[in-house]
Simulated assay, not measured.
Amino acid sequence: MAEEKAKRRAVAESAARGAAKRRVTSVDVAREAGMSRATVSYVLNNTPGQSIPESTRQRVLQAAERLGYTPYAPARTLRSGRSDVVLFVLPDWPQGPTMADLVDRAAHVLAEAGLTLVTHVHAAGDDGLARLWTSLTPAAVFGMRPFSAVELESMRRAGISAVLPYTDQPGEDVGGSLWVLGVGGLQAQYLIGKGHTRLACALPDEPRLTALGRARAEGVALVCAEAGLPRPVLSTVPLDAEAAAEVIGTWRGAGVTGICAYNDEVALALQAGLRARGESLAVIGADDIPAARFAVPPLTTVAQDSGELGAHIARALLDALQGEQPDLETFPGAALHVVERESA
């Protein structure tokens, strides 16, 4: 008996040494477990419709664990026709904590469903997306901007059926209906509720954020139109107190009393410009960064539960994988709220 155990241990050690040089396969597991390749394959792939005794299943799984076996993703993709990867295509925006929270929460929801989230930053003009579909064969794809007709066609040829958003809007860089319209709209609703009837939008001077800033401004414009107010004045505001003060001077001439800033950093620049001029205007930012509460005066802002948006997107993708028609209209209701402080 002792000799038999020693022999089996030697075989296992030999297999393990071989595995260090090459990938452990189901053939290795079958040899280690002393079972047929078919039985091992049924167990490792959890094949439905097979009556495998629990003792046999455990024997195979224990052998796989001893050898360090892991499923080979390309082979699994060939069997199922798709990978377990969900791809997020992100525009070339500066990636801050808001996007990180979104991606982290989406990854968690997808992981619970047995899927892996992969992100790809897509620079404008890059033609590498078609190669990406081919190499990853993702189960589903989500874009923070609508895909072009060419991109949609390349996904269709690659066999990717779960794609969000559906809409093909050539020339648009941002899927505004997903979240950015909601931010600007809530800013405008708050200021109008405070009695302001002439609003301005402070856009970022970072070129990569131009489309996103204008989409948020469009959310402000929509709410102004609903309230019977003129469209907001649009101005780019650098992160510089002197430059911000100059922009504020032009707004004063246009009768502006309330400002919807692209984000809290732009709002802080505006507050510095107002202090330099010795003036005050109502300012509301977005993102609720830590510095907002320490601003002078403390900054009113729109807080975004980007983690909840990430979970919402992930659940929509899971619905799409089941052949359902998910609803991606704006944020979930609880994802946006105003943090009221003293600046507006």
Score class of each variant (00 low, 15 high):
22 R>E: 12
96 G>P: 03
238 P>Y: 09
133 W>G: 01
252 R>H: 14
329 E>M: 10
80 S>G: 03
317 L>Q: 15
209 L>H: 00
176 G>V: 06
287 D>C: 08
311 A>G: 07
298 P>Y: 05
177 S>P: 12
285 G>T: 03
226 E>M: 11
167 T>M: 10
227 A>T: 15
173 D>V: 10
303 A>H: 10
318 L>H: 01
195 G>L: 02
211 A>I: 13
303 A>L: 12
26 S>V: 03
311 A>M: 08
47 T>G: 04
171 G>Q: 00
143 G>H: 12
271 Q>F: 08
32 E>A: 15
260 C>N: 02
49 G>Q: 04
182 G>K: 13
337 H>P: 13
141 V>Q: 13
18 G>Y: 09
100 A>Q: 01
192 I>H: 03
23 R>H: 14
86 V>E: 07
134 T>P: 06
217 A>K: 08
265 E>F: 05
135 S>T: 15
124 A>N: 04
179 W>N: 01
93 W>H: 10
338 V>T: 08
56 T>M: 05
59 R>W: 09
33 A>H: 09
344 A>H: 11
143 G>Q: 02
69 Y>F: 13
240 D>R: 09
104 D>N: 12
113 A>Y: 10
285 G>Q: 06
131 R>Y: 14
288 D>A: 00
41 S>C: 02
134 T>M: 10
290 P>L: 12
305 D>M: 05
27 V>I: 11
169 Q>V: 15
306 S>H: 03
234 L>G: 04
173 D>N: 10
334 A>F: 10
270 L>W: 14
310 G>K: 06
41 S>T: 08
69 Y>M: 04
312 H>M: 05
10 A>V: 13
278 G>R: 13
150 V>G: 15
167 T>Y: 13
272 A>C: 07
